[in-house]
């Protein structure tokens, strides 16, 4: 299983803050995971329509789309940060 977290407008569009999913077959990295989520359609496709504005953290560290994903990981998807 992997834990998925969504923040800001990705959370609004997807309609939930987090979920646990089995690591889909053939998915080895963040990029593959995003393609898998886009294919779910609906709010997922909407939230992930423009991946240029999607940032990723794996186990609470910023990660590129090429970063590997393995069972037990916590993967967060969110827009560019706007704190401060």
């Amino acid at each position: 299983m992997i834990k998925l977290l969504y923040f800001a407008w990705l959370r609004s569009k997807i309609g939930q803050a987090e979920e646990q999913i089995a690591l889909p077959e053939g998915v080895a990295d963040v990029g593959g995971l995003i393609v898998h989520l886009q294919a779910r359609g609906g709010g997922y496709a909407d939230a992930l329509a423009n991946i240029d504005v999607v940032k990723v953290a794996v186990n609470q560290e910023y990660a590129p789309f090429s970063h590997p994903v393995k069972p037990g990981d916590e993967v967060a998807l969110f827009p560019p940060v706007t704190g401060g």
Partner: peptide, 13 residues
């Protein structure tokens, strides 16, 4: 402040 603005995971609504 500069790093916080671009790296700390906060979002304003």
């Amino acid at each position: 402040m500069d790093w916080l603005k671009t790296k700390a995971p906060f979002w304003k609504l």
